[in-house]
């Protein structure tokens, strides 16, 4: 798993490549928490290059989202592909978060 972040005017875009599984989820969650600790409360997760996510990854997302909500922040998603899209759908996460086709679209909605 690789994580790249970039600051836009209205949000921080977090792009994740590879796999978020039970092994990598703690590192992913740590990265999200570090952004929040730095005062970034609007996050766009660009998952275009994410190949795989398990319930461990969803747990990290949910944990970060709960903390963001407490700060009046939000988390948006963009670019979900095949298996990741399926997991969001099966889990009901698809209706819990705003999901956009592209990062640009997500940024326009903020």
């Amino acid at each position: 798993m690789e994580i790249a972040t970039k600051k836009e005017d209205s949000a921080v875009v977090v792009s994740v490549t590879g796999r978020i599984d039970a092994v990598t989820a703690p590192e992913f969650e740590k990265e999200l928490l570090a952004l929040m600790a730095g005062g970034d409360y609007t996050l766009v997760l660009n998952l275009t290059s994410l190949e795989y996510i398990s319930s461990a990854g969803l747990r990290s997302i949910l944990s970060a989202a709960k903390q963001l909500k407490a700060k009046d922040g939000k988390m948006l998603f963009a670019g979900l592909q095949g298996p990741v899209k399926d997991v969001f759908k099966i889990s009901g996460f698809g209706s819990l978060f705003k999901i956009f086709e592209t990062e640009e679209e997500a940024l326009r909605q903020i």
Binding site: S54, A56, R59, L62, K66, K69, L96
Partner: peptide, 12 residues
């Protein structure tokens, strides 16, 4: 979001 948990999701 507040009420949601991930317990049991893996087995689901």
């Amino acid at each position: 979001i507040d009420e949601r948990t991930v317990g049991g999701l893996g087995i689901f």
